[in-house]
Simulated assay, not measured.
Amino acid sequence: MISRYIYTLVLHLLLPSILVRLWFRGRRAPAYRQRWTERLGFTPPLVSSTAPLWIHAVSVGEVQAVATLVRRFLQQHPEIPVLITTMTPTGADRVRQLFGDQVSHRYCPYDLPWAMSRFINITRPRACVIVETELWPNFLRQCQRQQIPTLLANARLSERSARGYARFAGLTRDMLSRLSRVAVQDHSDAERFKALGLDPDRLKVIGSIKFDVEINPQWAEDAQQLRQHWGAARPVFLAASTHDVEESQLLASLPELLAAYPDVLIVLVPRHPERFDTVAQLCQESGLSHVRRSQSALPIATTQVYLADTMGELMSFCSAADIVFVGGSLIERGGHNPLEPALLGKPIITGLHTFNFAAITQGLASAGALVQVSNTKP
C-alpha cells in the first residue's frame, strides 16, 4: 500500500534527526545512550532457544498495566520464556524492578522494515502481545510476514486518538487488518476501532486489565516507615506523575494551601526522571523549604515540599499519602491511571484532561472517589 511506503520513506529521512534527539536526551538521562543499537534492530540473542512470548509495553504505565498478566503467565507456563520490549529507559527499569531475571528485556526497534525484520529474526517470538494502542505499520507487517500472531491487549482509543488515526485512513486500515485479535477496554473503544475499519469478528470487549492490580503488602510497610519520618499526624498531599508546566502550577498554588494547612507536606513525584533536576530547580526558585529523596534527605517539621526523585516507589508514596493528585491531567496529556490510588482508598484529584482513562475517571467521579478541577487553586 502506497501510504505505508510514503510513511517508511519519511521515517528513513527523519532517522538522523531521531538519533540526534536520542543522543541529546542522553545528556539529561544517560540511559538513552545505552544499548542504542537495539533501536536499529541489533539486539543481543536471547539466552533460551525456546520461542518466547513477546510483550511490547512502550513505557512505565504499560509495563505496570500488564504486570499481573505477566506474573500469571509465568506461573502457568514456566516453560515459555517472556520477552518484554519498551521504548523508554524508565520502562526498562520498571521491567527489572517487577520481574528481575524472570523475563528478558530489549528495546523495541524503530519502525523501520529492516530493523524490525532483524529483531524478529534474532528473537523468533511465538506470538506478540501489544499493550494498549501502540500501533506501527512496519512492526505489524513484519509480524504478519513471519506468521507471528499479534494481540492488541487492553486496547483503548480516545476520541482524540481516533480522529488522528482517521486522518491516515488507508494506513490505519492496513495496520488494523494485520492484527490477529483486539481486546478493548469498553464498548466506546470498540465502536471507534470498528469505525476505523477493524473487522468486528476480531474484536472483543473484556474491560481494563488495570483493574487487576494486586496490592503488594510491601507498600503498607514502606508507608509506615515513611510516615514515621514525615510525621504520623501530618497531612500529606501527593502530586503523582506530574509533567512539565504542572509542577510550576502546583508550586505557585502551594502558598494558599499552606496558609490553610500550615503543617501540610507536599510530596512531588515527576513522571520522567530526566526532569528531576529541572523540578528541583523549580522548587528552589519557589522559595519553599524542600528536600530531595535521592540525596537521602529526610523532611523535618518545617519542610514543605519533598521531591521524590527516585523510581519504583510511587505506590509506597500513594499508600503513605492522605490525598493524591494524578498528573498529566492539567495539560492535554490525557492523564495517568487513577485506579492505583483508588485501590488504596485514597481521595483523588485530577485535572480535566483525562481522556486516556475517561471511563475509569467517570466511574470514580460518579462514586464520589474522585474530583476534577480546572486549575490548581485550592
Rank of each mutant, 00 (worst) to 15 (best):
W136S: 08
F139K: 04
F139Y: 13
L140N: 07
L140C: 08
R141N: 04
R141I: 03
Q144H: 12
R145F: 01
Q146T: 12
P149W: 11
T150F: 00
L151S: 06
N154T: 07
R156N: 11
L157R: 00
L157S: 02
S158A: 10
S158D: 07
S158V: 11
E159V: 12
S161E: 09
S161Y: 08
A162C: 13
R163T: 13
Y165E: 01
Y165W: 15
F168S: 10
F168A: 10
F168H: 11
A169Q: 13
L171S: 06
T172N: 04
T172Q: 00
R173E: 09
R173M: 05
M175R: 13
S177E: 11
S177P: 02
R178M: 15
L179I: 13
L179Q: 03
S180N: 13
S180F: 03
S180C: 07
R181P: 02
R181V: 12
R181H: 12
A183N: 09
Q185Y: 06
Q185N: 04
D186Y: 07
H187Q: 15
H187L: 08
E191Q: 14
F193D: 00
F193V: 05
K194T: 12
K194H: 03
L196S: 06
G197E: 05
G197M: 03
P200W: 07
P200M: 06
R202S: 03
R202G: 04
L203S: 03
K204P: 00
V205L: 03
S208M: 01
I209N: 06
I209F: 12
I209A: 10
D212H: 09
D212F: 02
E214Y: 00
I215G: 01
N216H: 11
P217V: 11
W219E: 10
W219V: 09
A220M: 09
E221P: 00
E221N: 09
D222W: 10
A223K: 02
Q225S: 14
R227F: 13
Q228L: 13
W230D: 08
A233K: 13
R234W: 09
P235I: 07
P235K: 07
V236A: 01
L238W: 02
L238T: 01
L238E: 02
L238I: 04
A239C: 14
A239Y: 02
A240N: 08
A240H: 01
T242H: 05
T242C: 02
T242E: 07
H243R: 14
H243Y: 11
L250W: 15
L251P: 02
L251H: 04
S253E: 12
S253G: 11
P255T: 11
P255S: 09
L257M: 11
L258V: 06
L258I: 13
L258H: 14
L258S: 05
L258A: 04
A259W: 01
A260E: 14
A260C: 08
Y261G: 00
P262Q: 10
P262N: 05
D263S: 15
D263Q: 15
D263C: 08
V264I: 15
V264F: 09
